[in-house]
Design a protein around this nucleic acid. Structure first.
Lengths: 217, 217
DNA sequence: GTCTATACGAGGATAGAC
DNA sequence: GTCTATCCTCGTATAGAC
């Protein structure tokens, strides 16, 4: 924490010589960079600049750009994973379990609004290795199982559970990936990622999922 | 069309000296490259190789990588635009108009399965200029208007029409962007982009939209 | 119109001083 | 542990021959 005065002329100087500070700073900066540019187009130089460290630090702590990327992915997926685990709360009806899960997933995304874009980019550009390695299957598989259960119980309408799961994940995540464009739509254009907009998004998605999956009367 | 025998040693030779062939070939190759890598990470060399032309041709016909990208975007958006125009067929009920539009949008995407990824990447990485320049506003605005009309008429449930429009576009497009990952899900894993899967996706989305927007009874 | 050769810059990665 | 300097590859773009 020694407040070494930056000398102003050269680039920044050791504001802290401490991995407890440097590593999280790099991860946070990398998250932003990878979320907007994807892996290949991301620049280690930009990450270093944003983290206020020198480029070499990235390779010192993460060996390679790829290593840093994987660390970022892992970090971004954790909240999703937790949302998933918490929603195993068994004896809920399929409907309640699904809506609870969606609510938690949306909360996790709201907390880390860049995560959906990171995974979207990884899906489009990657070849599925990270998807596998991170154990992202459950995200779809468990929703699918939940849907299957609810359909059998007559709570949900008949549908293909696999596609149902995909559609639900898409409803939650698409908004965050499109936020950049959405902010340019005419009309009352408040930032799509501010608290108010996110709350609205969550409410709308939950309603859409509830109505869209419910059994016909 | 002169079948100049490729001499095998040097790189490919003028299979045709004709912009009628070269330009579309470049555009098709560029579409694939930009859809998987985005703008910055796309390589003109890869595009040229895939199109079976020399790199210089890209700059000859499109001046710059950016110029090529814009041409690809424009080309990819056309089918969406047409789907939109055709669904103005006035005197339909809001419900029928919406479902018809969704059906056409899905058909347009199925025909050009890379388009959603291109626009997704442009949304995440771009700063909205292309979104504006291509006139992509109507895609959301008109659905929004349609929803508003249907809500007023009591056909649709109460909802925020802007978010409703976003959710519907998301339901249609997310699947295509996630296809890469989806193909790695366990279970009966046929290619998410083959005819059968796409037909299933379309049916599921249409059902989801119909149920999800319908007024409660 | 098509191809080859090359200028020029950007960026990932490493070596080694402090 | 941190920083500077540097190497080397890759990629856009252009000039000019055919």
């Amino acid at each position: 924490m020694g407040p070494t005065a930056s000398d102003g002329s050269g680039p920044r100087h050791a504001q802290t010589r401490d991995r407890e500070v440097t590593v999280p700073a790099i991860l946070a900066a990398a998250e932003i960079e990878f979320a907007t540019h994807g892996f290949s187009a991301a620049r280690t130089e930009s990450i270093a600049a944003r983290a206020n460290v020198v480029k070499g630090m990235i390779f010192h702590y993460f060996q390679s750009k790829e290593g840093l990327f994987e660390a970022v992915l892992e970090r971004a997926y954790q909240p999703f994973n937790e949302a998933l685990d918490k929603s195993l709360d068994k004896n809920l009806s399929a409907t309640d379990a699904l809506l609870t899960f969606v609510e938690r997933l949306l909360a996790a995304m709201a907390e880390k609004p860049l995560s959906p874009a990171i995974f979207m980019l990884e899906s489009i550009q990657g070849r599925g290795e990270h998807f596998r390695r991170l154990g992202m299957f459950p995200l779809y598989i468990r929703i699918e199982a939940l849907l299957k259960r609810g359909i059998a119980a007559g709570e949900f309408r008949k549908m293909d559970p696999r596609h149902g799961a995909i559609n639900i994940v898409g409803l939650c995540g698409f908004y965050f990936c499109a936020a950049n464009n959405l902010s340019h739509l005419p009309g009352r254009s408040r930032n799509p990622l501010n608290k108010q907009s996110l709350a609205r998004h969550a409410a709308e998605v939950i309603a859409f999922v509830r109505k869209g999956t419910a059994a016909s009367i």
